[in-house]
């Protein structure tokens, strides 16, 4: 018996799937990349002056804008000495015919939560540095991700843009005067404590590819988003589509994810000024 998924694609998708698979067998892809090549990456920071941090990232034809707004609020009672962050993501209707206006659907929720997990478990920032007065005042970062143009794989550029916006964040410094909080003219950039990045890996038959473009994404058997940090920890995984991942492919998938996320880290450090803690 075989799994039922193979008959689910419509005719055009099946033709495309055969084409993409036969290209992969020759080590090629539709857009001229090799199976293990990422799309070209560009990162621009500080695009939005009204946001305390912002970044526009393109990965091939996928374009993501992330802005961070900072507010002062009360720390959580179980973590009185820490600030906090919240990630939101919206798949904007201008980005794709398949996105609709309205509150985030399950795809938007999933994107936000996957990025959140990578940042949190990857320990990208030290939340203790975001505390102003213990138990009373702390910075809250609202990391809002907008997909502007969707040409496949919005997960990885979304995390890159969130990291770039965090790296270039300018938070107004507050001081306590007579028990009251007062905004000063100074700004500070909290240092990054780690560099989590993710890569989306697609499986088609026994073949892999990284960073799928939209035509590939539609016909993959299954895909996974795997996040790592610079120390060789896997910090997040999300299998984000139906389909089976053969158990015997997992070791290779993890190794490939490590190699490609290291490449993204190198590219990130070439373009974004990073103050990494302990350096």
């Amino acid at each position: 018996m075989t799994l039922p998924l193979h008959s689910r694609k419509d005719l055009t998708a099946r033709i495309m799937q055969e084409k993409i698979y036969s290209l992969l067998q020759q080590g090629k892809r539709l857009d001229g990349r090799g199976p293990r090549d990422l799309r070209p990456l560009t990162i621009q920071t500080n695009l939005v002056e009204k946001a305390e941090g912002s970044a526009l990232v393109t990965m091939g034809g996928t374009k993501i804008l992330t802005g961070i707004k900072v507010e002062v609020g009360t720390p959580y009672s179980d973590r009185p000495d820490e600030g906090s962050f919240a990630v939101n993501a919206e798949l904007l209707p201008l980005a794709s015919t398949t996105f609709e206006p309205g509150p985030p659907d399950e795809r938007g929720v999933e994107l936000a939560r996957v990025v959140d997990r990578s940042l949190r478990e990857g320990k990208a920032i030290d939340l203790k540095k975001l505390c102003i007065v213990e138990g009373e005042k702390a910075y809250i970062l609202f990391i809002d991700i907008y997909v502007l143009d969707y040409d496949g794989n919005y997960y990885d550029p979304a995390l890159i843009s969130a990291m770039a916006a965090l790296a270039t964040l300018k938070i107004p410094r507050y001081r306590v005067v007579d028990g009251k909080l007062e905004k000063t003219d100074e700004y500070f950039t909290p240092e990054l404590t780690a560099l989590p990045f993710s890569v989306m890996i697609g499986v088609l038959g026994e073949k892999f590819l990284v960073d799928p473009q939209i035509d590939e994404e539609k016909v993959l058997d299954v895909s996974l988003i795997i996040g790592t940090d610079e120390k060789g920890n896997v910090v997040s995984i999300q299998k984000n589509s139906p389909g089976p991942v053969p158990m015997n492919l997992m070791d290779d998938i993890i190794e490939l994810a490590w190699e490609k996320t290291q490449e993204i880290r190198r590219k990130f450090l070439e373009t974004v000024p990073v103050k990494l803690a302990g350096e």
Binding site: R117, V234, V235, S236, P244, V245
Partner: peptide, 18 residues
């Protein structure tokens, strides 16, 4: 099918432990 149909990770596992 010796296949994984759901996989998520929240937390840190070194790739050698995987």
């Amino acid at each position: 099918f010796d296949s994984i149909v759901l996989l998520q990770l929240n937390g840190r596992i070194s790739k050698d432990e995987f």
